[in-house]
Design a protein around this nucleic acid. Structure first.
Length: 1042
RNA sequence: GGGCCAGUAGCUCAGCAGGUUAGAGUACGUCCCUGAUAAGGACGGGGUCGGUGGUUCGAGUCCACCCUGGCCCA
């Protein structure tokens, strides 16, 4: 006996019991432990920030990360899956700062870095239980107990090894970087923080006169809104392609861009002395505004430089350039090798280097600087503008863009290798490789990896306070040896106090204060998670690069990138071989999901309502698994449930219902050739075809390609195979055909579960548990993936079935057109065709047509021309190249072919066409034959098959029609009485004579169909009789349980 | 401003290497079917394939430019 399965089902509840089954029986653990260490498939899990809750983006990524490892597990691989946590970084620090009421660097240091870091450690995993709950509910199998954390000492030590290896390869250097800086907090801000603080504000808008050297009485006009940066000016930038002019205005000469001449001088009279391209100005010298850094002229300062960022939107087309205080400025300075000057402290006050302005706050200095320049008559124009400018979101102070010393990975140096490694990665979808990822790598710039923060992995470099000598630590042991201390942790509050003597001078070595960008840590996760190379060397060597990773599209610039950089830098290899990229999950309205807009349903509600299988399948069947955006909608979930999981479930319910009635004992079909019913051979052929499709798609990491065919298969199984096989299961008693039907359906259901288990792990487990016998593994997920049996695949049979399906469709359409309902039996259907394959569908297969369409007989005829109009059209794919431009002229001849001429071609003849005196021969294969209805004859055509229906009725057919109607009403009544499918009944009826004689004539048929013990005519009718109209005849029927 | 992806029916999307009347699912309407199925089927309405030019005998498909949306970068 199989477990009795009701067709009503609550998937979410069912899934909960499956989850418990997995836990209680350690199925996941077994699926890993039982596999050999020699046959591994390696997966890396990208660590999420633990500071937020899981959302749909995580659900799609988690689903992909579950499907692929499950599939490879079923192929016999050992697939370890360790969850990871990204623990360090700004978001955690913010949380703690907020909780403690701290504001920036000074506050944190006053509070104590050690205490602060320990607070961070304390909150970083506070959502991990939510994560565990969600990941479990989704059915993702991943080891969350034996996870890796970027803050663990072993992980951190591996990071030091990575850093030191790059250091030794001379891929690490220190330079300057422009950051948004809060002078109040003495700390750099992240982009995210900067965006929090944009405000409209008033600033000076000034045009300054820079005196040209060696050109008396001539000035470059440059524009700025930050006069305080003028002290640090080292260049004037012009666009190489724009046209500049030297003009005379009131006895003074000015140089500026031609396009802004009128805007600058208004209606004043000016005389153009000369015109030149910006590129011609390059290298011309000018006088420094202030004397403080005048000596830098020797190092290339105070010259005109070129920059393509110069625009004519505002100003004068000449941009004041202070390399320490702006992104473009800095890049330009770097290009021209300008020296680094920085007359300011970390709180925004000018230092002694700025002599006259020393001690002034940068923003307050604006006025003093303008005053000084005005006195020297170097201000051309002084106005005020209102614009949007970023302020510190916590202190309210205006931000400044400035350089800070920063540690870099020299990515440029290894770029070629990175590009090559990328070419060896299989990306899904493929366009990522040369598109987004490839383009990003081509443009890759050196990677700034230091952060001036506290909660992170300290940069393991000690610097001499006297001579600047640097020493990079590559392990915990190395530092212990140098310090004589035993270390249990590597965070800065454990290591910063360690100092030692410089090997080159009398100085003291102290750690550089920065911590590593947390992207460096996640990119180094292949090494960190295994504490490589301090442990697991052999395991690492055999499993690197990983076989598979998967994350969202946004990781092209994130994790994918850092994995590639570090894999290339360390081993000259990609860190992974295959990668599926998922797209963004948007709300139903196409916008971002937003908690404040409430434009999406809670993920947990969806899991509770539809179950995880449906959520998984919906996403797998969408573009989200090939980097397209997904507009998430609940109706999509409903549709998925209706089209896939519900019919599948009901196939099981159907099977168990009748198998139990018949007490059928499980047997598997090993050899399709033994089966006599073509329907059975057909569904098995489709099944193995499906296995082939899934296998092919999975090898290409094409999840859509794997999922779409099995959803289609469910439809074929339920709406054709079972629908057309039902009577075989209903037959009373035993029989070989019935046995084969059971064996086939059993085999299909069992194999299908195994094939789709990686995608929809719950329902397949439940079905498997119902169907399995004691000799089979205890879980579907411990089974081997079913192999394609090519002997089972019968392409010809599948083609024939397609013709049957088409013919049935046409037959149904004809009945609708003739307004003859299906319950009315008809004598004959005729398939008209010259296609020889169709001849083969007769015999056993014709039963499918007669049953489905309720006709007595199928006839095949070849004389289609008698019933349909035949016309020909050119096969352009063949005739296009053959005739080229003449096609237009020859076309009417082809379209004008008569039916007789076409039939001649169908019989193997050739047709001669004449064009411009030239003769051409045309064969059948160069034409498309079209069929249209002839007037007065109702037919349907699709392809080369035409169907005609004999709608003549005679007394016998009419009587049978009555009998079918009668059966239908009795069955409806059975359903209303909520009888069991095997209950016997007794039937009484009352009707006119015509109907009565039809019913009595077919009483055996009626009794068999409705499981009626008796069928009595009643003169009187009475209580419990229900009135019906059967083909316009009145009738009363009473049904009672026997 | 740059890169990538997308724009086809009310909605979600197919349309492979250019080929004839551009498809499917869904929703809507009519009819049919039903003792596994919150199902199933037939028919019907619904499209200037984002726009403009070009290549070609022929363009949703190839090329150029532009517009819109998304993501990333600046």
């Amino acid at each position: 006996m199989f477990k009795s399965i009701k067709s009503k089902v609550n998937f979410a509840q069912m899934e909960e019991t499956v989850l418990d089954y997995w836990d209680d029986n350690r199925i996941f653990e077994k699926s890993v432990e039982d596999r050999s260490d020699q046959n591994t498939y390696f997966f890396y899990d990208g660590p999420p920030f633990a500071t937020g809750l899981p959302h749909y983006g995580h659900l799609i990524a988690s689903t992909i990360k579950d499907v692929v490892p499950r599939y490879h597990t079923m192929l016999g691989k050992k697939v370890e899956r360790r969850f990871g946590w990204d623990c360090h970084g700004l978001p955690v620090e913010f949380e703690v700062e907020k909780e403690l009421g701290l504001n920036g660097a000074a506050d944190i240091e006053a509070y104590g870095v050690g205490k602060f870091n320990e607070q961070c450690r304390g909150i970083v995993l506070r959502y991990s239980n939510e994560w565990k709950r969600t990941i479990r509910r989704l059915g993702r199998w991943v080891d969350m107990e034996n996870d890796y954390k970027t803050m663990e000492v072993n992980f951190m030590e591996s990071i030091w090894w990575v850093f030191k290896t790059l250091w030794e390869k001379e891929l690490i250097y220190v330079s300057q970087k422009i950051v948004a800086f809060s002078p109040r907090l003495s700390t750099p801000l992240s982009n995210f923080e900067v965006n929090l603080g944009y405000k409209d504000t008033q600033d000076p808008s000034v045009t300054i006169k820079f005196a040209a050297k060696n050109e008396p009485n001539t000035y470059y006009l440059a524009w700025t809104t930050t006069p305080w940066t003028l002290i640090s000016n080292l260049g004037l930038a012009v666009h190489p392609d724009l046209t500049y002019v030297k003009v005379k205005h009131e006895d003074t000469y000015y140089i500026l861009v031609k396009d802004l001449l009128r805007k600058t001088f208004g209606d004043d009279e000016v005389y153009t002395e000369a015109e030149m391209k910006g590129s011609e100005l390059e290298g011309r010298a000018y006088e420094p505004l202030f004397p403080y850094f005048a000596d830098k002229a020797e190092e290339g300062g105070f010259k005109v430089v070129l920059g393509t960022y110069v625009s004519t939107e505002a100003g004068t087309g000449i941009v004041h350039t202070a390399p320490s205080f702006g992104e473009d400025d800095y890049e330009t300075g770097k290009r021209y090798g300008l020296p680094h000057i920085f007359p300011m402290d970390d709180s925004g006050y000018f230092t002694e280097e700025a002599t006259d302005f020393a001690g002034q706050y940068f923003k307050d200095a604006d006025k003093q600087i303008m005053k000084a320049l005005k006195e020297r008559k170097l201000v051309f124009k002084h106005e005020t503008i209102e614009h949007s400018y970023p302020f510190c979101w916590r202190s309210g102070a205006p931000l400044m863009y400035r350089t800070i010393p920063s540690w870099f990975v020299n990515v440029e140096k290894i770029k070629e290798n990175m590009l090559e490694n990328n070419r060896n990665i299989t990306w899904s979808p493929g366009h990522i490789q040369n598109g987004r990822m490839g383009k990003w790598l081509e443009g890759a710039r050196d990677w700034a990896i230091s952060r001036n923060r506290y909660w992170g992995n300290p940069i393991p470099v000690w610097v001499c306070d006297s001579c600047g000598e640097k020493h990079c630590m590559g392990s915990k042991a190395e530092l212990e040896e140098l310090s004589g201390e035993t270390l249990t942790d590597l965070h800065s509050h454990f290591v910063d106090h360690i100092t030692f003597s410089c090997s080159q001078c009398d100085g003291t070595m102290k750690r550089t204060p920065e911590v590593l960008d947390c992207w460096f840590e996640s990119g180094a996760m292949p090494y960190g998670q295994q504490h490589y190379p301090f442990e697991n060397r052999e395991k690492f060597d055999t499993n690197f690069p990983a076989d598979f990773i998967s994350e969202g599209l946004d990781q092209t610039r994130g994790w994918f990138y850092t994995l590639i950089v570090l894999g290339s830098a360390l081993f000259e290899k990609p860190a992974f071989k295959n990668c599926i990229v998922n797209g963004l999950v948007l709300a139903e309205d196409g916008k971002k999901m937003s908690k404040s807009l409430k434009n999406f349903p809670d993920p947990w509600d969806m899991l509770d309502k539809y179950g995880a299988d449906v959520v998984r399948l919906y996403m797998l069947n969408s573009g989200a698994v090939r980097a397209d955006d997904l507009q998430f909608s609940e109706s999509g979930l409903q549709e998925t449930m209706r089209n896939a999981t519900l019919p599948l479930w009901n196939a099981l319910s159907f099977f168990t219902t009748y198998a139990n009635i018949d007490n059928w004992q499980p047997t598997l079909v090993e050899n399709a050739a033994e089966l006599s019913n073509p329907l059975d051979r057909w569904i098995l052929s489709r099944l193995h075809h499906l296995l082939l499709d899934v296998q092919t798609a999975m090898e290409a990491y094409d999840l859509n390609g794997a999922v779409a065919p099995f959803v289609g298969f469910i439809d074929m199984l339920t709406n054709w195979y079972i629908r057309r096989s039902r009577r075989r299961f209903w037959k009373a008693g035993e029989g070989e055909d019935k046995n084969q039907a059971y064996a086939t359906l059993y085999t299909v259901l069992l194999t299908f579960c195994q094939a789709t288990a990686p995608f929809i792990p719950f329902i397949t487990e439940e079905i498997y548990q119902v169907l399995k016998d004691d000799s089979m593994p205890e879980s579907v997920h411990l089974c081997m993936y079913p192999e394609v049996n090519h002997d089972m695949i019968d392409v010809k049979l599948e083609e024939e079935m397609d013709i049957i399906l088409k013919s049935v469709n046409m037959g149904r359409a004809l009945r609708a057109k003739h307004q003859v309902k299906i319950r009315q039996p008809l004598q004959k259907i005729t398939l008209l065709t010259k296609n020889e394959a169709v001849q083969g569908v007769l015999g056993d297969m014709s039963l499918l047509i007669t049953d489905e369409l309720n006709v007595k007989q199928v006839e095949i005829a070849q004389n289609e021309e008698d019933l349909v109009e035949l016309t020909a059209k050119p096969n352009l794919r063949l005739l296009g190249p053959k005739f080229g431009k003449k096609l237009k002229d020859i076309r009417p001849q082809i379209e004008g072919l008569t039916a007789a001429e076409i039939v001649e071609l169908q019989n193997g003849g050739k047709k001669k066409l004449v064009l411009d005196g030239e003769e051409f021969e045309i064969g059948l294969e160069e034409l498309f034959i079209e069929r249209h209805q002839k007037e007065g004859v109702v037919t349907e055509s699709e392809g080369d098959v035409t169907v005609a229906l004999d709608i003549q009725l005679n007394d016998a057919l009419i009587a049978e029609g009555f009998a079918r109607e009668f059966v239908n009403k009795v069955q409806q009544t059975r359903k209303e009485l909520d009888l069991d499918v095997v209950d016997r009944i007794e039937v009484c009826f009352k009707s006119e004579n015509l109907l009565r004689s039809a019913i009595e004539k077919h009483q055996d048929y009626i009794k068999t169909e409705t499981l009626a013990n008796s069928l009595e005519y009643s003169e009187s009718g009475g209580e419990n009789f229900a009135d019906w109209v059967l083909n316009e005849q009145d009738c009363s029927i009473k049904v009672s349980k026997a």
